Each structure stands twice: as C-alpha cells, then as structure tokens.
Computed example of a mutant assay.
Amino acid sequence: MPTDEPAPAPGLRERKKDRTRQQLRACAAQLFAEQGFADTTVAEIAACANVSTRTFFRYFDSKEDLLLPDGIELFSAVEQALAQRPLEEPPLDAVYNALLAAAALFRSTSLTALTHPLDGTEQLIAARLIQVFAEFEERLTRLVLDRLPPETPDADLHAAVVAGAALGTVRAILRTQRGRRAAGTHRPAVLLPQAFEILRQIGHTAP
C-alpha cells in the first residue's frame, strides 16, 4: 500500500563507514604531525576518532596502512572505471584510461607519506606498498583476462603482462614523485599520461 513516508536514504551504512574511515585518516594525520609516527598509537588514533580500537581494525590492518593511499577506494575506482571501458579497446589502453579516471584519488593527502616519509619509515612504507600493489596486480590480471577474446593465445600470460606493465608504470611514477620531492608540482595524476606514453614508445621500439 502506498505510503507518504520518505524511503530511507540509499547507502546510509556505506556513507557512515566512509565517514568513519575518513575520520580515522584525519586523526592519524593530525597525530602523526603533532607526535610523530613512531610515538602515535592505534589507541590514540581510535580515541581521537571516537571509536574503539576494535573498530579501528575493521578499517585498517595497522597504523602503517594510514600512510598509504586508500587502497579500497583507489582500486575500487579503477575496477569500476575499467568495467565502463569499451570491450573493443586494447587492454593496456583500457587500463590506462581506468587509472586516469581514478587519478583524483592519487591526490589524496595520504600520498604525502610517499613523497615525504615520516620518522624514517620510508622502508616500511615501501614494503607495505609493494604488498598492496601485488595484491591488486592479481585482481587486475583477472579483470584484464575477462576482457580478452576467448581465442586470445596465451590469454593468461597476456593479461598478466598488461597488468604488470600498467602497475609497474604506476610504481615508477610514485618513485619518481618521491625522488623529485616537489610537492604539488609533479602529482602522480600529472605524470600518468607521460609515463604511459613512454611505455607505449618502449613497446614500439624496434629491437
């Protein structure tokens, strides 16, 4: 029977979870700046965000994860953008355009940790970043494989090479950004088109 009551707002739970995640990140950034990374505890971050330590670990595996781009948001955005690319588009171009569409997330303040490491944690961050990229590389490989025509020779290898080349290029961008240490001048999103153009040139270089 029709009712005049408004329907519940769609995605309310998701929005609440997103607010909690962002609040934890904001508190961590504030505490890291005030106290330093090493002297800041998970309990302090949770208290600042008015949540329990148990709740903190529902969102992040460790405080080190707060130094990295939000993998859940970033990779989800890439996956969604890739799903919208035309199936006839060459796989590498499709992945590039998906990364470009999600490039706004590369501007996250959490990327500051990649260009200006805190308290000598650069090696730790780099190790965690390698793990995050490795996990996503497997997911991206499966997504590329799903886009390939069934008759593609060595389709699994083809997909793995495309995913590896694309994410290797992104890693190169982040290393370059960190090496230049020019905050705001060479954002990853700005370097992305240049880096993929270099990748394409390498692919067309005669032996």
Rank of each mutant, 00 (worst) to 15 (best):
E5M: 14
P6K: 10
P10C: 09
G11K: 02
L12P: 00
K17C: 03
R21Q: 06
Q22S: 14
Q23W: 00
Q23Y: 02
F37S: 03
A38G: 06
D39Q: 15
V42H: 01
N50R: 12
F57Q: 07
F60E: 02
D65M: 07
L66R: 02
P69S: 04
G71P: 02
I72P: 00
I72E: 14
E73D: 13
E73C: 06
L74F: 11
L74V: 08
S76I: 01
A77K: 09
E79T: 12
A81P: 11
P86F: 08
L87M: 08
E89C: 10
E89T: 14
P90W: 09
L92T: 09
L92Q: 12
A94F: 11
A94N: 13
Y96L: 13
Y96T: 05
A101Q: 15
S108H: 13
T109C: 07
L111K: 04
T115L: 11
D119I: 05
G120R: 06
E122D: 08
E122L: 05
L124D: 03
A127L: 14
L129K: 02
Q131Y: 09
Q131T: 13
E135T: 07
R142F: 02
L143H: 02
V144L: 04
L145M: 05
L145A: 12
P149N: 08
P150D: 15
E151P: 07
E151K: 13
E151C: 07
A155F: 00
A155I: 00
D156Q: 08
L157F: 09
H158V: 04
A159Q: 00
A160M: 08
A165P: 00
A166K: 04
G168F: 04
V170W: 01
L174V: 11
L174N: 05
G179Q: 10
G184A: 05
T185V: 15
H186L: 10
R187L: 12
L192Q: 14
Q194Y: 15
Q194I: 14
H204C: 03
T205V: 04
